[in-house]
């Protein structure tokens, strides 16, 4: 009970901004350099093998996985407190796989659950995926249509952000994306189920700064994009708008409106000819 009460505002606030990860540590680093080849440039003589790409993806996502685990435990405990069975808890994580939406819905869970309202809330909270999928699809030219759909099913803040960072410095491959997503997904599902049993041991991940792991990952990734044209304009418009909206109406709207403002500002700043460097 205490767990469900105390961090109440906390998860909702910590989570949505928390879930993203980054690509491999090395790739993110590299993306801080010239960001040029945004488009696949064909095979290089040193084309990495699929296994190497997969492994890079897994390594990239490790810090995000470590940071997500305490939140997954907490989510499992919250679901149990709200009366969900372990099977239902696992099913929700497996089929939804979106931490912020799961926290918000479970925080206001009623029994019997109003499915229409729950669906609408989830749609609003996850609306940022619309931008994310439109953007990442531009880098999935080498994916088959089936692989593209499968990849989108597993799209979350973290693997998306790492995929973008990877694409900014080279080629995004199916293997790399699979490395980013596979274990991250399994870890999320398994850890929420485990949380249904042991989640009560975790008090408040915020006190240990775990939520800040996601913030730090995102800051690192944003900085990696710093040589893009319109970078400062985009960050200023997006962060300013999101903060303003958050102060007026805390909730997922701040992400959608902030992102829209950032994108719009970049388009205006670019001029009709675009921003090709």
């Amino acid at each position: 009970m205490e767990i469900a009460r105390r961090p109440r505002v906390t998860f909702v606030q910590a989570w949505p901004r928390s879930i993203a990860h980054m690509g491999a540590v090395q790739s993110t680093r590299a993306s801080a350099g010239p960001l040029m080849p945004d488009r696949p440039t064909g095979k290089s003589p040193h084309e990495p093998t699929a296994f190497a790409d997969f492994r890079d993806g897994v390594v990239a996502t490790l810090p995000a996985m470590a940071a997500a685990t305490p939140f997954a435990f907490l989510l499992g405990a919250l679901a149990t407190d709200k009366g969900l069975s372990t099977l239902e808890t696992g099913l929700m994580s497996a089929l939804v796989f979106a931490g912020s939406a799961q926290f918000i819905v479970l925080d206001t869970w009623q029994s019997p659950a109003p499915w229409l309202l729950v669906g609408l809330v989830t749609f609003v909270v996850n609306f940022r995926h619309v931008f994310m999928s439109a953007s990442v699809l531009r880098h999935m030219g080498s994916f088959s249509p089936g692989a593209r759909c499968a990849a989108l099913l597993f799209l979350a803040d973290e693997n998306w952000a790492f995929a973008e960072a990877r694409a900014a410095r080279g080629r995004l491959t199916v293997a790399y994306y699979a490395g980013l997503s596979g274990f991250f997904y399994l870890n999320w599902v398994v850890s929420t189920v485990a949380g249904a049993y042991v989640g009560r041991l975790i008090r408040d991940p915020r006190a240990w700064g775990f939520d800040f792991a996601f913030i730090a990952i995102f800051i690192g990734l944003i900085v990696g994009f710093r040589s893009r044209p319109g970078f400062v304009v985009t960050v200023t418009a997006s962060a300013g708008t999101a903060t303003l909206v958050h102060l007026i109406q805390p909730g997922p709207l701040s992400i959608a409106l902030g992102a829209a403002a950032g994108v719009l500002a970049a388009a205006i700043a670019a001029g009709p000819a675009g921003a090709r460097r």
Binding site: Q13, A14, P16, R17, A20, D38, R128, F131, M132, A134, S135, R138, D157, A161, E164, A165, A168, D211, I215, F218, I219, L221, I222, F225, R228, P229, G230, F231, T234, V235, S238, A239, G240, T241, A242, T243, H246, P250, S254, I255, A256, L257, G258, A259, A260, A261, G262, V263, L264, A265, A266, A267, I268, A270, G271, P272, A273, G274, A275, R276
Partner: peptide
Amino acid sequence: RGRLEAAFEAMPVAVLAAIIAPT
């Protein structure tokens, strides 16, 4: 090309900045 391309190029930064800004 053009403004639309610039808008798409800005998406990762715009979304990430909006996610973390309130915190």
